[in-house]
Amino acid sequence: MELAPGVRVAVTDRHGGVSAPPFGSRNLGGLVGDDPEAVRANRAGVAAELGVRAVVFMRQVHGAEIAYVSEPFGDDPPPVDGVFTTEPGLALASLGADCPAVLVADPHARLVGAAHSGRPGTAAGIATALVEAMAAKGAEPGRMVALIGPGACGRCYEVPAELREQVASRVPETWSDTSWGTPALDLRAGIEAQLRAAGLPEVRHDARCTIEAEELYSHRREQPGGRFAGLIWLT
């Protein structure tokens, strides 16, 4: 779908690939135990379906490091959780199986970025770091628009009380309770708060909960399992 003029985004699901169970069938994650040839075929299929020249996949480590890219990393990507580019037709992928993707664009500056914002990354401010890195290259937060992808929702993402305290001490908006009354984290609310504080006027959502949406992979619901992707690119 179009996120902004000249900017497209997509969220894959688990269907339409070649991976065998328990990764069936469109697993895009290379570090979950799936057949590497199946993963390569799935990734190539996504690029062809989207009509992009290439897709950048990161080696996500739940950190807050950001890198500018003009080509894919290849078979040995560096440990980063955010990338951005000015290159048309180069799709940026954030893999997830409960961790939301953060897809950001300044359509005027022709800059797009993607980040993987799980619990550690949200606490570390990966979304803020992505906005700041893009701003250093000429983007303006007041012109940016973002999409937060599917993730474990604040009514399902149960955590120990001490962990909720720890994360909410950094990002208060993450404080939540499950639908059954136990401590939880709402990463989506925390990420939106970070983006708004960074100056973004427009934050959209693919609000599906990965734990509940069976068309998506969920690490909490099934192990072992695959990874889907949120992607953004310039047309």
Rank of each mutant, 00 (worst) to 15 (best):
N42D: 12
E71T: 05
I148E: 14
G190S: 12
Y157E: 14
L31I: 11
R196C: 07
P160C: 10
V83C: 10
S94T: 00
A168F: 09
V56Y: 00
D98K: 02
F73M: 05
E162Y: 08
R204E: 02
R164N: 05
A4R: 05
A207C: 02
S176H: 11
L185M: 13
L187G: 06
L234Y: 05
S25C: 10
A129D: 02
G30T: 04
P88K: 10
A189L: 05
A48N: 03
D76F: 07
A109K: 03
E222Y: 03
G181V: 05
E202H: 14
S117G: 04
A127N: 08
E71N: 00
R155V: 13
P160K: 11
R53G: 07
L31P: 01
A114Y: 02
A198F: 11
A189P: 13
R221S: 03
G113W: 13
R43Q: 09
Q166G: 00
A10K: 04
T12S: 15
Q223V: 10
V145I: 15
P224H: 01
T210D: 02
D186C: 14
A114M: 03
S218L: 07
M144K: 08
P77Q: 00
E202R: 15
G16P: 08
V69D: 04
P88D: 01
S169I: 01
I232K: 00
E140Q: 11
G190V: 12
S179A: 15
A189E: 12
A38T: 11
G121R: 03
W175S: 15
L28A: 11
R43S: 04
D75W: 00
E2L: 12
R188T: 15
R208A: 06
N27F: 04
S70G: 05
G230K: 05
F73R: 01
C156W: 12
C153Q: 01
L90K: 08
M134Y: 02
A213V: 00
R164T: 05
V112D: 02
